[in-house]
């Protein structure tokens, strides 16, 4: 139990970082109604881009921005495959993801992983988030505001505020309409191809940004770091929805619940690791099972426990 408690700050930090990716997944999966598998590739693209640029002496904010940028490009690729080439969204995402595997290796100079030398104190001081800061803050060697939970938490709030503003604008509304009802959107003069591409770009930009933060946190990027990312993202979206949808109705709070969903997911995974002797290689299987079950719940509910939907009568009082 003590092991779990002491590992919790790290798990929460990591959960918050993945939460930003989950918010990206939310945009495609829930807002646009597209299951975008680009994520597994673009997550690593962001991480690799960040580590390589940082190694070249590029300042952290610029490297993070660049990671966001390559994510936009990954989303653009999937978006064009889907809209311009007419490939089903799920397949378009798989194609981009596959292609990104090579791209990611190329970014890393054809190596399977690249790392940031955090033994070098000068390097370490430049970073915004790092696993080491978790321990440093615990020891009192660093002020609390350098704790990754604090830093990534601020990041998350910034992302949510920006997205909340964006989805309230004319363009943001047309993006939501595209996901809600494409026919209606086109009838209102919205070019649904453009909005879909835009949504995929923003989503993958956030996923890449999240990958960059994780690479920074763990001080390395690895070609397989994005494997199963989409499942973690979906898990976060579903957990957030299951636990908070009754109390959080506002869009900003819904995004927050997605982030919290990722934190809870990592806390649970950490508990499983700390409290049992399970071989960690089984974690992906467990994740897949959990997400599978949660995804089927709404279907089962509708099929076997359907309650008559309460609808208002057609202008009965008129």
């Amino acid at each position: 139990m003590g092991g779990f408690i002491s590992a919790l700050p790290g798990a929460i930090s990591q959960g918050l970082i993945w939460g930003i990716m989950a918010i990206g997944v939310y945009i495609t999966f829930k807002v646009l109604d597209i299951a975008d598998l680009t994520v597994d590739g673009s997550f690593c693209t962001g991480g690799a881009t960040f580590v390589v640029l940082f190694g070249m002496g590029v300042p952290v904010p610029v490297a993070l921005l660049a990671a966001f940028g390559v994510g936009l490009l990954a989303g653009l690729a999937t978006g064009l495959l889907h809209t311009f080439c007419g490939i089903p969204a799920i397949l378009a995402g798989i194609l981009t993801q596959l292609g990104l595997w090579s791209v990611n290796l190329a970014i890393m100079g054809m190596k399977a992983n690249v790392s940031i030398n955090v033994i070098n104190q000068e390097n370490l001081e430049k970073l915004w988030v790092s696993l080491r800061f978790v321990q440093d803050v615990a020891k009192g060697a660093r002020p609390f505001y350098r704790h990754p939970i604090f830093v990534v938490g601020l990041f998350t709030i910034g992302v949510i505020v920006l997205l909340y503003w964006f989805f309230g604008t004319e363009i943001g509304c047309s993006l939501r309409a595209t996901g809600a009802n494409g026919n209606m959107a086109r009838a209102q003069g919205i070019n649904t191809d453009v909005t879909k591409v835009l949504g995929l770009m923003i989503s993958n930009g956030l996923v890449s940004l999240s990958g960059a933060l994780l690479a920074q946190y763990q001080s390395f990027a690895d070609s397989s770091m994005g494997k199963g990312a989409i499942v973690i993202g979906l898990a976060a979206v579903i957990i957030g929805e299951a636990l908070f949808s009754k109390i959080f109705r506002n869009f900003a709070l819904t995004l927050l619940s997605v982030s919290l969903g990722a934190v809870i997911y990592y806390a649970v995974i950490q508990a499983v690791i700390s409290l049992s002797n399970i071989n960690t290689n089984y974690l992906k299987l467990i994740s897949a099972c959990i997400v599978g079950i949660f995804l089927s719940v709404p279907y089962w509910k509708g099929k076997y426990f359907a309650k008559p939907v309460k609808r208002e009568e057609v202008a009965s009082d008129a």
Binding site: F166, G168, T169, E170, I171, G172, C173, S174, Q188, G189, I190
Partner: peptide, 11 residues
């Protein structure tokens, strides 16, 4: 906003 260019103004 049918037929208008959509911008970053409030929806």
């Amino acid at each position: 906003r049918r037929g208008d260019r959509r911008t970053l103004r409030a929806g």
